[in-house]
Structures are given as structure tokens and as C-alpha cells.
């Protein structure tokens, strides 16, 4: 799997070249186009339980009912049959793409960012204690995104789509970031609440919905920041759409 990223930074598209018989796991929304010998080899529905990205399709009901905001990511496997093939992949929104080579510790990333991965990469979506990472303050509206952990015993690649430009930050000590802008981070980093006070803002803070999820990254490692917040984008668009009839 050779990846070349073009049209950077605003309209990035990844051209993935596959050898004969080679496959790539992609998000359902990521495919732009492909050569005619590339087949959608399998579709699967992640139900936020740990499993290999290349595992066989499952018929399990999603853990979250459709009314819940959190949507598990859906993946397809694209395989070049009979000859080498090419696949074009892109994120949902304008922005850059980030290609990560898997390392032993693995990475965590925002679920909105998943574009593609090598078949051996394990994507773990059931992460204890990390579900509240992206939620805004104490609002009951849970975060519509979650963290996914990517690991692989073999060398593998992970392709993530950012909303906006990507800035890699070296964490040496502490970094305070708004989680919506966090694309990915090395698993060795610890993430905790930033403790930047919201509650002490008085009546105004209680009256208005919390609009930030500030978290503190501690330790040594790298964090990739995206310069636009996809969750805020989705919320703004979704709220402005005509109401859906229940």
C-alpha cells in the first residue's frame, strides 16, 4: 500500500496504490473513486467493540440506538483483484490528510478522522474512561465523537482526515487543547481535564451551553491538532437544518 497525498492542504486526496490481491480498510464515507478491478470485498459495522479492522462482517446490532448522537464508524474493505489497482480517498470536509506509520505504542484519534488503515491495524473503540473525553462540560448531550485506539504488531499505516490544516505539536510537560481540535495523539500521553474553570463563571456559565472541552495532555509525545473543529461544524450545520419529524 503506497499512499500519495495530493491537492494539499484544503482539498487533500490520498491516492492509494494497491498491489494485486492487496486490500485496504476504509471508512464508508472516504471513497472517491477507484480503478475498475478494485472490489468492495467486505462491509462491516463496527459496534464499538474491540476487533481487528479486517475482521469479517458482523451482524450485531449497534450498541447505540439510532437516536443516540454517537455513530459508530462503518468500514469497507477495498481489494485490488487480478491486477494492481488505485483508490482515491478523502475526508468528509475540506482539510489535510495525515499518514501515520504504526509504532509499538499506538495512536489514539478522534473518530471523525478515520479515513483508512492497513488491514492488520487493530482499531479499538471501547476505551474505558475515555468516553467523556470529547464531551462539553457536564452537558447530558454526550460527545458525538469518541476516541479510537490504533495498534498493530506489524508495520502498518493509518490515514486520518483533518478538518482544516494539521499542526504537529511536541508535548514536553503539558499542553492544554480543546478536544474538538485534537486529531490524534501518541498513546503514551496522558489526557486529563484541564481544570480551566467554567463553573466559577457564575450565572452566565450556567445559563449558556458549555462550548469547549479543554483537556490537558501530559507526558512526552506528539499531538496532531486540526485547525477547525468538526464537531462544532456538525453541530452548527445540524442545528440549522429544518427539524426532522420524529
Amino acid at each position: 500500500m503506497k499512499v500519495h497525498i495530493g491537492y494539499r492542504p484544503a482539498q487533500s486526496v490520498a491516492r492509494v496504490n494497491l498491489d494485486t490481491g492487496e486490500s485496504v480498510i476504509v471508512d464508508h464515507s472516504a471513497t472517491v473513486g477507484m480503478s475498475p478491478n478494485v472490489r468492495l470485498a467486505a462491509l462491516e459495522h463496527s459496534d464499538r467493540h474491540a476487533h481487528g479492522a479486517g475482521a469479517a462482517a458482523r451482524g450485531a446490532e449497534p450498541k447505540h440506538p439510532p437516536s443516540a448522537v454517537a455513530e459508530p464508524i462503518q468500514r469497507a474493505s477495498l481489494c485490488a483483484q487480478g491486477a494492481p489497482g488505485e483508490v482515491l480517498l478523502a475526508a468528509r470536509w475540506p482539510g489535510d490528510l495525515l499518514l501515520l506509520e504504526l509504532m509499538p505504542g499506538g495512536y489514539l484519534f478522534q473518530s471523525t478522522a478515520f479515513v483508512a488503515a492497513s488491514p492488520d491495524v487493530r482499531l479499538d473503540e471501547q476505551l474505558d474512561g475515555l468516553d467523556a473525553l470529547f464531551s462539553l462540560g457536564a452537558t447530558p448531550e454526550a460527545a458525538p465523537v469518541h476516541a479510537i485506539k490504533a495498534r498493530s504488531e506489524q508495520p502498518g499505516q493509518l490515514l486520518l482526515g483533518a478538518c482544516g490544516a494539521i499542526e504537529p505539536l511536541e508535548c514536553e510537560g503539558e499542553l492544554i487543547l480543546e478536544m474538538g481540535h485534537v486529531l490524534a495523539w501518541e498513546a503514551a500521553l496522558e489526557v486529563r481535564d484541564a481544570g480551566v474553570d467554567v463553573a466559577r463563571g457564575g450565572w452566565l456559565a450556567r445559563l449558556t451551553p458549555a462550548r469547549r472541552a479543554l483537556r490537558c495532555f501530559a507526558g512526552r509525545g506528539r499531538v496532531w491538532v486540526q485547525t477547525r473543529d468538526p464537531v462544532a461544524l456538525g453541530r452548527r450545520l445540524g442545528r440549522a437544518l429544518p427539524r426532522r419529524h420524529a
Binding site: 468528509r92 471523525t112 442545528r239 427539524r243 426532522r244
Partner: peptide, 11 residues
């Protein structure tokens, strides 16, 4: 599709 997750329902 992504914005749908944040869309409000009537009622």
C-alpha cells in the same frame, strides 16, 4: 450525513 447526527427533531 454528519450534520444529521446533530439535527433536532420536532416535538
Amino acid at each position: 450525513g454528519f450534520a444529521e447526527r446533530f439535527r433536532r427533531t420536532s416535538g
